[in-house]
Design a protein around this nucleic acid. Structure first.
Lengths: 160, 160
DNA sequence: GCCGGTTATGTTATCTCATAACAGAAGGTG
DNA sequence: CACCTTCTGTTATGAGATAACATAACCGGC
């Protein structure tokens, strides 16, 4: 998936087989616990995100949606993404116009990414926004969501 | 400019008259100091950003570009924005697909914004990325740029 | 069981955002 | 002024996202 290099895709290998089923099952459970429905298109989009090892563009998901190569209609996928983001199953990476499955347990409403400009990997990490939230409070802002995107080179690409 | 409310546009009033000319002059000087050229279209786009009190969409700039109502062609404005971003005169706000003039002196390569979902204001602040940079270093990343966008409500809209 | 509200999907069309590609003009240097 | 480099003008198209409306599935009360 590397845009500029041939380094291993590394960090998040993409799930398959039983690991994938397990992740989807966990999502079902989390939905059931909150009266939300993981319907077929939502489940399919989550599956596509989990299977992949790099951020996926909406139109990649649209193209890959059908089991036998038929694409989805754009609203189908955008609606599913909206749902998955709302429940914290997926994140949008603004600077890439792309989507990733959430790799961190729990629904934090906060996302932070290390994005490798070389291999295209996007690693989610647990952000410590203390400093920024205190700056926001000082300015009188009530922050509801906060995202951070750091661009650079991952360990493998720095070394290579 | 408020999307959802009628609060004062507040934080960054938008420059005009001599303040605007002064800001443009300062930009000229900074360009001259580094062998860069603040050409007519670049200067015009910077002027439009400085005049406004809220983040501007690219096509808003395109529409407002001409002195007598003639729009610019898209590449004209996008090229100017690219230049202004490169030199630190402007920032793109990813989550809005919009642009603001840099309100902080010096060329930091770092931007952080408090964005009010109520009145649409975007306030730039000096970020302290110590915590996140240390997390990135721990993961082996070499960070080149980093952006942060916090959504919420500004002081005026929280009060109102 | 079936009615009625609510939520989700299917479908068409369109809108917004951004860039590729290439020709020509302007600046700067020997 | 010849050359190279950078910037601009122009046409066309590609990528990303949503509006609007009709239909279908779910689910609670009765």
């Amino acid at each position: 998936m590397g845009a500029e290099c041939h380094h291993p895709d590394g960090v998040h290998p993409g799930l398959k087989g039983s690991a994938l089923n397990h992740a989807l099952g966990a999502a079902e459970q989390r939905c059931a616990a909150t009266q939300e429905r993981l319907t077929a298109p939502r489940r399919r989009v989550l599956e596509l995100l989990l299977e992949s090892n790099s951020p996926q563009k909406a139109y990649d998901l649209i193209a890959a949606f059908g089991a036998h190569g038929e694409p989805a209609k754009p609203p189908t996928v955008y609606r599913a993404l909206e749902f998955l983001e709302r429940l914290g199953f997926a994140h949008r990476i603004e600077s890439l116009n792309a989507y990733v499955p959430c790799r961190i347990d729990g629904q934090s409403h906060r996302a932070a990414f290390l994005i490798c400009d070389c291999c295209g990997a996007a690693e989610e990490f647990e952000p410590d926004f203390t400093a920024q939230l205190s700056a926001a409070a000082k300015a009188g802002y009530q922050v509801s969501t906060i995202t951070l995107e750091a661009r650079g080179r991952c360990a493998a690409c720095s070394a290579g």
